[in-house]
């Protein structure tokens, strides 16, 4: 295991040290004293494990293609921006636009997430990006989502905010949003998505994600499954078709 002291180290220097460590064959790297350094592990295409102590800066793991990052703290905005493969695990909360344009891999967050999580996520063949949120999400959850899986658990029942903020699923035209319990209807973009109970097939695709989430964050799977899940599905593959002039 390689430890890199990040306190006071500029993000470029920190990323150079991290890349040098994994190039040198390190399979596990611990970044100590991280605070606000941007772009950590951006574009890395290796199978290393990276532990982050502290609060990483924006665009953690952007364009990442393989590593497994574990954040022992909160994460800021833009986690997993356009990431392609690998995993990001956040033990605290994470900010806005998490998983923006994500194309593969997975992100698991124990706590709450901010605005526009999963915006423009997409899937292609066996590349299916997955995001699991243990807490609650703010507005525009799954906006313009084209593919992949978003799971929203709302496990902290002492929190009385709605599971997701307003405009959930606006412009969604592919993929699945799974919700433990139900969303208030006025927070769902009902012109673009419909809610229905999950099927056996849905449950099969959810199960490994829930198991992994529970193992990571010490939850009982039975407790998670105690509340029935629902699924948001797209109404149309072209939700804004009516906004354009017809082809004549």
């Amino acid at each position: 295991m390689t430890t890199i002291e990040a306190q006071g180290v500029y993000y470029r220097e920190l990323n150079e040290q991290l890349r040098a460590a994994v190039r040198g064959g390190a399979k596990e790297v611990v970044l100590e004293g991280v605070n606000g350094q941007r772009y950590i592990a951006a574009g890395l295409a290796v199978r290393a494990k990276i532990a982050i102590k502290g609060v990483p800066g924006n665009d953690l793991g952007a364009f990442m293609n393989g590593p497994r990052i574990e954040v022992f703290g909160n994460a800021q905005d833009g986690v997993g921006n356009t990431m392609n493969e690998g995993a990001i695990i956040v033990h605290g909360d994470a900010g806005d636009v998490l998983g923006y344009g994500m194309r593969g891999g997975k992100i698991l967050v124990r706590g709450d997430v901010g605005y526009r999580v999963g915006i423009h996520m997409k899937a292609f063949k066996d590349q299916v990006p997955r995001i699991v949120v243990g807490g609650r999400a703010q507005d525009f959850f799954g906006e313009y989502m084209a593919g992949g899986i978003l799971v929203l658990l709302g496990l902290d029942e002492s929190n009385h905010r709605p599971l997701a903020g307003a405009y959930c699923g606006t412009g969604l035209h592919g993929g699945a949003i799974y919700v433990r319990g139900a969303l208030p209807e006025h927070n769902v973009a009902t012109e673009h998505v419909r809610s229905r109970p999950i099927t056996d097939e849905d449950e099969a695709s959810l199960r490994p994600l829930i198991e992994e989430f529970c193992e990571l964050f010490a939850y009982e799977p039975d407790e998670v499954w105690r509340v029935p899940f629902s699924r948001l599905t797209p109404v149309s593959h072209r939700p804004f078709a009516a906004n354009y002039a017809p082809n004549v």
Partner: peptide
């Protein structure tokens, strides 16, 4: 604008929220 900015002033916070 960012949590890290606050933690640079006070690393040990009672509460952080969005």
């Amino acid at each position: 604008s960012e949590e890290a900015s606050i933690r640079q002033v006070e690393p040990d916070l009672d509460r952080v929220w969005m």
